[in-house]
Design a protein around this nucleic acid. Sequence first.
DNA 1: TATTGTTATACTCTATAACTATA
DNA 2: TATAGTTATAGAGTATAACAATA
Lengths: 153, 153
Amino acid sequence: MRLMASVTSVPTSQAESIGAEAWALFLTLFGHHRRRFLIAAGEFDLHPAQAGALLNLAEPLPMHALASLLACDSSNVTGIVDRLEARGLVARQLSPEDRRVKHVMLTPAGRRLRGRLLERIGSPPEGFERLSAEDLGQLRDILRRMLAEPAGS
Amino acid sequence: MRLMASVTSVPTSQAESIGAEAWALFLTLFGHHRRRFLIAAGEFDLHPAQAGALLNLAEPLPMHALASLLACDSSNVTGIVDRLEARGLVARQLSPEDRRVKHVMLTPAGRRLRGRLLERIGSPPEGFERLSAEDLGQLRDILRRMLAEPAGS
DNA sequence: TATTGTTATACTCTATAACTATA
DNA sequence: TATAGTTATAGAGTATAACAATA
């Protein structure tokens, strides 16, 4: 994707320059993943937002929680879930605790489709298998440190 | 995002298990990046596809090349470029070599907006600054190996 | 009063197919 | 004959605002 191609940055240290390259490589990887995701969703006749919803439904979720995960307005989730429901992939369930809330849950068919989607994009992409066992260990540890919650968050 | 949460895989080796965790961490990172991208695009009144087009226009590109990078049909690019052009962010330029081709290029205003977008999402996200210089070097080298073209591609 | 989910609206994205101009 | 870009069309995503039901 060459997202960084024309960024004229002036690194103040070598570490900063290396970090910039590492992040540029991440962006390249994001581009690959995005295309893989779009292609896989299309093969199952799912729009990207629908595929994203299925992936986030490992367990039942209130509508507003799904909206938050999809980074879109709640009003959109109504339509997305409507269409998934029309295809028999999800069902709405009234919450007994809070009668304002509806939980969205996968049907058996929805769970099967989600599994097939995960086979396609949940597994590591081409290139991953070239990494050594040592590489994988280092990578995992570095990503863990990067994603560790910074105490107050 | 917990994309891997309910994947019941049976790792045949420890390396495979570590690799699976590393990839799951990648997916978490993708989710963070996607949300950051959507929020940044919205702040500049750009739809995601428009923001993606701007980011890919570091240099002038034929319409069909842009379609390929955005992983969408050429007919969509016509509309996306129409709207960016109406806002004075890009311009179409006929190619002198092949008169079927139109190159899309940023205007000065488009270049400024692209720069501001890159300040927001082209720079490393929260968490990156917690990595040591050694981490960054290892990460860069591993990602390089992962993204290296496998001879015939 | 605040929150949850829905509806109405307007605009954009998306794929498909058909079309023109060019190669 | 194939390719580049456009147009027309239909269906879906998106944000905003207004609404009813519930907390």
